[in-house]
Design a protein around this nucleic acid. Structure first.
Lengths: 209, 209, 209, 209
DNA sequence: CATGAATGAGCGTTCATTCAT
DNA sequence: TATGAATGAACGCTCATTCAT
């Protein structure tokens, strides 16, 4: 029994190795960028030597790409589910934005993937597309759908926002970039910022006559 | 004649060298990032050898920092001047946003400095602060001033936008980041996007009752 | 058998590496001096590449310092033991000088350390002190002790030699420097030179009958 | 007149340039050794640029060799003149040793040439021979002559010193090497040391009554 | 599976040397 | 005569990658 358990846990541990490495790689790459990260530092985070990393990933390039793939967890379905909720278009749009905020700007991992997309896009063109497909495109599509529904139902007016649904979500990117730049040195109240932008988007600046 | 020309061009050449190097450094650093850029590549852009670069800049670090300083040209005064124009608060705000758009999202150099601030902020903490002071803080301050004026004059309603003036400008950051990520692969109509966001911010999504 | 041998030789090989490198470094540094020695040449002596050297020593500086430390083997205890032998003070002094000669002037390694102390003392102040403490100070102290004993017993007259015991040993330094300068081009009969100087010194030291 | 003077002084100054450079080169080479000395540092001592140095000396090698030649000023004739003085052989020997001491151990330049002979002898075999011919050989020859005269006149006993005249002069080398190693950190009273060694040597040399 | 010694290509930096002015 | 910008060949050091154990 004990033996079996041990074996199992060992086997499990071994199965986890690649993932552990990818997590460690994420930490290093997100702090230092691709070029300045040493494979040895990734290994050191796990208390192993760099030879071990090469046991699972043939090159640093592949390690980076698989790390990116591993950290990117799609959230399109989440957005879709929110879109089908009951309530006014405004309420659903608000819920959508808050959900997207949590995933894109509030989640450290997704945020750091944005940084890597910006900094390593030249070397790894695919990761930019991946980031787009995983995070940006679904968000925009979801927003567009909701806006169009709102317009169709007469709740929203027609206008530029229908053609550029991104404008409604630009605050999310704003918060993400702000945090990437300033970390804790210039804190930003994310939810409040999103709400403020949502209020603006909903009601506008102009005084109602 | 020829002699004079030669002399002039020689002297001019020497005086221009440091700036030429900084411009070449900008091109390389913005494409590859700090770590992946080789001093030799910077030199090669000018048709000189790397020794020449070291004639003017003692280390790669200093080269990077001075490059950043050289490329950052403040635009706070521009924003200020726009803020003092005649017209409605909305008109002035619109003019301000378009101007900021041109400087921050449309100008390739400023845009690339944003990329470097995000990617090299860990290694060069100062450049993030510089980018903030040169571009972000002035923009937010100018927007805030205009919004407050609009509120004071009754043209704008009070609301979240007054507390978070950044929300009004978040579309600019959005366009800048979009272009950094996708370059020409997914073009974005910058002015139209800014106008769409401005329309949204001004009038809101909701149907007027 | 073969397997065991291989394993042993492998393990031994690794354990010996640092020392092999230090020995190779000694050869190169003593011939070329610090600045003109290339780490790659040190490695080439062992048939390895320079990377291997950096596996064991972080910088060229450290390599030099540890080389010096490794090559310096103290001989103070040897001198002391000689001083406690039986016989006349003259006999013991002679034995002492011959022993010191063998260690300082005749031993190529110690001799080359003297050269390095002279040539690299500016860059590595510590090595001069080390050379002093390891070789020069013990020698002078041992000579002084013997001279004082001889004076106390009435075998030696009092005189300048008691105040400057180094004068009795200066022939050793003379032979060492001579060999460093002329190597085999102008051979010097070391023992004969030491004996000649000892003869000169002794007849000056001895009490007149 | 003024013009002529100026011209003359200018011409003189120009004539002095090579010597100034050689003096500056001596200072740098003696502190850093050949390899670690930069031509630019030599030039900087004179407030000129390295191009100027290359105006007078085609390579760093030549600069070093000519520096050595320029700093080595023969003193054989001096020694010879001392040897012809009146007085006992002992007195003349003492005067000779003191004179040699002043030139070899007390004179900073000659002392530093000894250092360079030891450190750069591998790269510049000629300088060792030069140092030998200029300083060491004349000294030994002069000592030998005096000792032989003393032996011939019956003032000195025959013995090893006659076969190894260097032993009489080894204290001079001792003081020189000591100062090269310890500079001001472990001062040595040169004349006293020489006198002590001479006292030791003399009482050994003198015929027993 | 994991190690870590070893490699070799590469990069930052230096510096002797050249040459147009 | 003197300058100093420019070169190019090193050299110290790093690091991704390999492989015998």
């Amino acid at each position: 029994m004990t033996k079996t358990e041990k074996k199992t846990s060992r086997a499990e541990q071994k199965a986890k190795r690649p993932q552990e490495i990818l997590e460690a790689a994420f930490e290093e790459f997100s702090v230092n960028g691709y070029a300045a990260t040493r494979v040895e530092d990734v290994a050191a985070r796990l208390g192993v030597t760099k030879g071990t990393v090469y046991l699972y990933f043939p090159t640093k390039d592949v390690l980076f790409e698989e790390m990116f793939r591993h950290i990117s967890t799609p959230f399109a379905h989440l957005l879709a589910s929110v879109g089908t909720l009951e309530g006014s278009a405004a309420d659903r749009l608000r819920a959508l934005l808050l959900l997207a905020y949590e995933k894109i700007a509030d989640d450290r991992k997704t945020r750091e993937l944005l940084r890597l997309s910006l900094s390593e896009g030249t070397r790894f063109p695919d990761i930019v597309d991946r980031h787009h497909d995983e995070f940006i495109a679904p968000l925009i599509a979801a927003v567009r759908r909701l806006v169009e529904e709102g317009v169709a139902s007469g709740e929203f007016r027609e206008g530029a926002a229908a053609r550029f649904p991104d404008v409604v979500a630009s605050s999310i990117l704003h918060v993400a970039v702000w945090r990437l730049m300033f970390a804790d040195r210039k804190p930003i109240d994310g939810p409040a910022f999103i709400e403020a932008h949502f209020d603006l988007a909903l009601n506008g600046l102009l005084q109602r006559s």
